[in-house]
């Protein structure tokens, strides 16, 4: 299983060379640190899907002594491992450029990444190969572009929810959000497992 996770790095040797400039671009453009953490986390797991959505890759992986459960587990665990590594790297880069960031930024970046992964990972196995990478990438850019505006709009207009949230103490809020996100991730994992088990190649 560890081999399946390590595979991502072997596959993406060349893409990893643009990983650093990619992060630096966001840092130099003065993007919000949370956004930098988010895009850094997305880089490796989603690049892998560009390979994994191909039927040939699935035929190969399923012909090797791996179970389908392991293949999916390697995706979900791998995403977390690469997220941690990427955030570490991004932190170093931010630090080197003397940009300030807080633990909250990391938490927001990681949280958003996990939510995004929860919704998109199953799609890679549900839809036909060839389209889904493009769809996910475009929807990501769209969300990153208009997402904050939507949140601000909702925050201004749905006072019931914002009141409820602002009334929560910080620890409760963080724990609550963390639990919700982890639950989402777990549900997504189970869903993908079911979808992948039924898949034929």
């Amino acid at each position: 299983m560890f081999n399946l996770i390590r595979r991502d790095v072997i596959l993406q040797k060349r893409q990893l060379l643009i990983f650093i400039p990619f992060i630096l671009f966001f840092i130099i453009m003065n993007a919000h640190p949370a956004l930098t953490f988010l895009v850094a986390s997305i880089f490796i797991p989603f690049n892998t899907y560009a390979y994994d959505e191909k039927a040939e890759t699935n035929i190969l992986l399923n012909s090797l002594p791996y179970t389908r459960k392991e293949i999916i587990a390697s995706r979900y665990l791998g995403a977390i491992i690469y997220m941690v590594l990427s955030i570490g790297l991004a932190s170093l880069a931010l630090f080197a450029f003397q940009k300030n960031f807080t633990m909250t930024d990391i938490a927001i970046g990681a949280g958003l990444f996990l939510v995004f992964a929860s919704f998109t990972f199953p799609l890679f196995y549900i839809f036909k190969p060839g389209y889904i990478s493009t769809v996910v990438m475009i929807s990501f850019l769209l969300l990153a572009g208009i997402g904050p505006a939507i949140v601000t709009f909702l925050a201004d207009h749905l006072t019931v929810i914002t009141d409820f949230i602002t009334n929560l103490t910080m620890p409760t809020l963080y724990t609550g959000v963390a639990v919700v996100i982890l639950a989402l991730y777990a549900i997504s994992w189970v869903t993908t497992n079911i979808v992948y088990h039924r898949k034929t190649f």
Binding site: R6, I10, K13, L60, L64, P65, Y66
Partner: peptide, 12 residues
């Protein structure tokens, strides 16, 4: 070489 790195460790 890289393919071997991916496929090799899959087998005992």
């Amino acid at each position: 070489k890289d393919i071997k790195r991916i496929v090799g460790p899959a087998y005992k």
